[in-house]
Design a protein around this nucleic acid. Sequence first.
DNA 1: ATTGTCAGAATATGATCAAATTTTTTAATG
DNA 2: CATTAAAAAATTTGATCATATTCTGACAAT
Lengths: 237, 237
Amino acid sequence: MYFPKKSYKVRVVKEDFAVKENNVPAGLPAHETVYRALRELILFGELTPGSAVTIQGLVDTLGAGMTPVREAIRRLTAEGALVFQGNRRVCVPVLTQANLDELAYARAAIERQLVYLAAKNITAADIAILRSIDTALDQSIARGDVGAYLRRNYEFHKTLYDVAKAPILAHLADGLWLRFGPSLRVICGRLGTQSLVDQHKQAIQAMIANNPTAAADAMAADVGQGMDQVTQALKQK
Amino acid sequence: MYFPKKSYKVRVVKEDFAVKENNVPAGLPAHETVYRALRELILFGELTPGSAVTIQGLVDTLGAGMTPVREAIRRLTAEGALVFQGNRRVCVPVLTQANLDELAYARAAIERQLVYLAAKNITAADIAILRSIDTALDQSIARGDVGAYLRRNYEFHKTLYDVAKAPILAHLADGLWLRFGPSLRVICGRLGTQSLVDQHKQAIQAMIANNPTAAADAMAADVGQGMDQVTQALKQK
DNA sequence: ATTGTCAGAATATGATCAAATTTTTTAATG
DNA sequence: CATTAAAAAATTTGATCATATTCTGACAAT
């Protein structure tokens, strides 16, 4: 006889102090949870370029099993957010100037098209959302809150990707964020939020004016500015 | 003092009998081997769009353990070569017309820059290699050998990526091949090699003439032609 | 149609073994 | 003796597998 519910309940009861404990699949599979956590660490956390990422370390930190951790690491390695170091170790990549040039080209090309498509689809409600994110972003800059700035900025771009309804291009763009995110984080942490500029308001204006090309140009310029900041900071180091 | 090389050598000699034993990783880790095998299956094998990919199936087929298979699948999912279907199933994605448009844009943009960079680096020896690949490619077409054509064509582009010395862009381009490879394969299998055209010779001429922009344009056109063929074939289905 | 049951596939864990690095020990030389 | 290079042990971490548990879709019975 087979009683899946029953046996599951028994298991939970047996460890019932652990109702929302770690190893009980709340809703998402563990490998997905670990992936998201590690992704956050890379984009916004303390995982700076050069940091070693160990399987055992994540097993301890996140309280997950080996297999899910392993899968999350492979996924992020495939996306370029982590690199193999020949021996079996994995770390957050350190970008060279040539790497940054590649990223700048790719980001400009992909982001331009995404914003072009987004501008053709965009609704008044979407614009309102973008505006509220941009306002929060400005406040983060004024407050000097680097972490909040990084998240808001990402959120702004990500919202446009959603509106574009181009899943492949959005996935590519997301992968590029993962690659230069750690470097951007370090730079901003060093320089603060004072020197930060963007083209978000120009892009919003162009979208309101129903001018996709102008919006695309604005965001391509925005991306270019961001990459330039990283490049400049890298030179001075 | 610490000399990793030395101690490594000693270790290898000590166990040198266990060269190709069963669960002893001969040269590459199992997860890497499985990844490459699965990648080949997707690019050139019988894994057509829509095919289901099961963990058990690969465990049986490739004679590997579950964990390495799992890792390979996650990697290829992150690269877009496979997709999750919400429930725990994984399959080779079926591309929509919109997807193909996204891919056409991304491939043209990335490939153009890669060829531009390659043309600036290229040596006479590289040109000779490209020519020999292109000759073999033409012979494959004449023979009507679809499998060989696909491999040669990939090899031609891949060689240019190497010459470009732009690892991030090359990785992106590689990921795009994985996405449209299965569709290309199906189309070629259906239509044969008769209608196949490319811009390889024009690109080679431009590189010999030391004209990176012309070479980049030629290969962007080549990519465009390829994507058009897939688009046309998809419409007729 | 709804519910219950089941087989099969996916998820996840911990154990085990192999590989890489650090630390310690040993030996040799000036 | 001190210094330093090599070897050996110890530690940490990665790779793999066997196994237990959970989930899903299909099918049968009402």
